[in-house]
């Protein structure tokens, strides 16, 4: 079963410049898909469309087989945003935040699973970047979603925190059968860990096994002599 199906999707913020152009792909149940593309390639815009925050200018999007225009069961989708512009003085603790979206028992389970027990009583804004990402992942997992959309979940984290989050994602994919779609600029990590790669630069340049993506990525980022003009 395809959890996501995108058909001929185009999108423009101002009605003139297209951010996404005739994008089509499908994500099967259990897939771990890495989304790679230069800045401004439309990756975050694609996620915002998949989450219903933006409406496509053209084309169709289906979630769990249902047209996104009629889709209401958002608890089946977990989302970790790229950057949260939370007010600096936001006072809630990790436990309070998790309790907003999950019952007490589930909060305990999430804290154990994501190794958050050591900082569950601390305020969110006083945590390190890696700890904050874990909390966001915990909130995304609270309702037991089948599909996870992660927008650069390891950006700006140190190597240890990056590895910790990737281990958790691999566990979710392999042992819990979650379907994951993850935007990342860390090409090496993506190629090593995912089942499929979606190379996006307004259009889909490649969608398939990681092995076949290398040449396209090199071209997309201008890493091959005389090729491409994308930003690394």
């Amino acid at each position: 079963m395809q959890l996501i199906r995108v058909e001929d999707l185009s999108f423009s913020y101002d009605g003139r410049v297209r951010v996404l152009e005739e994008v089509s792909f499908g994500v099967d149940k259990g897939d771990f898909v890495g989304v790679i593309g230069p800045n401004g390639a439309g990756k975050t815009t694609l996620f915002k469309i998949l989450l219903g925050f933006l409406r496509p200018s053209r084309g169709k999007v289906f979630l769990f087989g249902e047209d996104i225009r009629n889709f209401r069961d958002w608890s089946r989708i977990g989302y970790v945003p790229q950057r949260l512009s939370v007010e600096q003085s936001f006072p809630a603790t990790v436990e309070e935040l998790l309790s907003l979206v999950a019952p007490k028992e589930r909060v305990r389970e999430l804290a154990d699973f994501l190794h958050m027990n050591s900082f569950i009583g601390r305020q969110f804004q006083k945590l390190s970047g890696g700890q904050q990402q874990l909390v966001l992942l915990g909130m995304a997992l609270a309702s037991g979603p089948e599909l996870l959309l992660l927008d650069e979940p390891t950006a700006g984290l140190d190597v240890h925190a990056q590895m910790h989050i990737l281990e958790i994602l691999k566990d979710l994919s392999l042992n819990e059968g979650k379907t994951i779609m993850m935007i990342s600029h860390d090409i090496g990590t993506v190629l090593k860990n995912v089942d499929k790669v979606l190379c996006l630069n307004r259009k889909v340049l490649y969608y398939g096994e990681p092995d076949g993506a290398v040449e396209v990525i090199e071209e997309m980022f201008g890493l091959r002599r005389g090729a491409g003009d994308g930003t690394p």
């Binding site: 608890s75 989302y79 945003p81 949260l84 936001f90 809630a92």
Partner: peptide, 18 residues
């Protein structure tokens, strides 16, 4: 209370939580 705290945290997260 819960909805308002979630809204103060992130509109995007709040929307997905219904």
């Amino acid at each position: 209370y819960r909805k308002l705290v979630l809204l103060s945290f992130s509109e995007e997260v709040a929307k997905l939580k219904g």
